[in-house]
């Protein structure tokens, strides 16, 4: 019995050691990958301003990102608005503050949920597609072919996608914000019979353009982040179809983690910036 416990404790000790060892390895890998993505982003972003300008490509990619994501943005936006407003109503009803359901939902959506959920969804849809596309081009030597033609593949493939995400994400986020507020309006006014005039009035009172802009800025940053991460993974894919799958998977997962982490820092940076400028 004693020896069993001793063994057991050793085993636990061993797994704890393993846990920290792999945690350490993961941390190192994370920073390595992060650093590599940042470098890749900086290198590619510089090429946005290199000639020839690729306006056609940029427009094509904006269309691609929009087309891929708009329906699912509408769907998730609507249901987020429905669920969030109902929960907040249930909470605020306890303290007789149902007047404030509208602005609370509005602030939560425009500042946080709108950009974050838009970021996550578009990263999964369009970001995943970018990683898969570039990965396929890498393993089938199409990227080599571009390079051998005397064309910079990052300038042709990556830079236009970064610009496209920068443009498309705030638009998609605005759509998300709008449709989510429509959902909230439906719950509060059509379903829960709150006063329509008060609902809109309080939203106008508490919600500034600054709140919406803050969300749109975040969305743009998230767009560049997932584009950099996903294109980097695809661009450096290796090992045939399996490698493309891995690149896509890692690209999407890393993008999602990055968006959520980045969101926290952006919230604080933007708040700081706004307060320095005296906007809030």
């Amino acid at each position: 019995m004693i020896s069993y416990w001793k063994n057991h404790r050793e085993r636990i000790g061993q797994s704890i050691d393993d846990f920290f060892a792999s945690l350490g390895k993961m941390t190192v890998e994370f920073f390595e990958e992060f650093g590599q993505s940042v470098l890749f982003f900086v290198e590619s972003a510089k090429l946005i301003f290199a000639k020839p300008y690729r306006i056609d490509e940029i427009i094509r990619h904006i269309e691609f990102i929009g087309n891929k994501s708009i329906l699912i943005i509408l769907l998730t936006g609507l249901f987020t608005g429905l669920a969030l407003s109902f929960q907040i109503y249930l909470g605020f009803q306890l303290v007789n503050a149902t007047n404030l359901v509208g602005p609370t939902v509005g602030l939560g959506i425009t500042r946080e949920l709108g950009p974050v959920l838009t970021g996550l969804i578009v990263a999964a849809r369009a970001g995943g597609a970018m990683a898969a596309r570039l990965g396929t081009m890498r393993v089938s030597e199409q990227i080599d072919a571009i390079q051998v033609m005397g064309i910079n593949p990052k300038q042709y493939l990556v830079a236009p996608r970064i610009v496209a995400a920068l443009v498309a994400m705030p638009l998609l986020c605005a759509v998300f914000d709008f449709i989510a507020m429509m959902g909230a309006k439906f719950i509060c006014i059509d379903f829960l019979d709150l006063d329509q005039a008060i609902f809109w009035d309080k939203i106008q009172l508490w919600l500034d353009p600054g709140d919406i802009n803050q969300g749109l800025i975040k969305a743009a940053v998230f767009g560049m982040a997932f584009t950099a991460i996903c294109t980097n993974k695809g661009y450096n894919a290796s090992g045939g179809a399996k490698g493309v799958g891995e690149a896509t998977n890692r690209g999407v997962v890393n993008s999602m983690v990055m968006i959520i982490v980045l969101n926290f820092f952006l919230t604080n940076i933007i708040r700081f910036f706004y307060s320095v400028m005296g906007w809030s």
Partner: peptide, 19 residues
């Protein structure tokens, strides 16, 4: 280097056509 590459042409094993 980019200029030099234009003086070379390559046929890759699987043609590497833009699909």
């Amino acid at each position: 280097l980019m200029e030099m590459r234009k003086r070379l042409g390559v046929l890759f094993q699987y043609a590497a056509l833009f699909d």
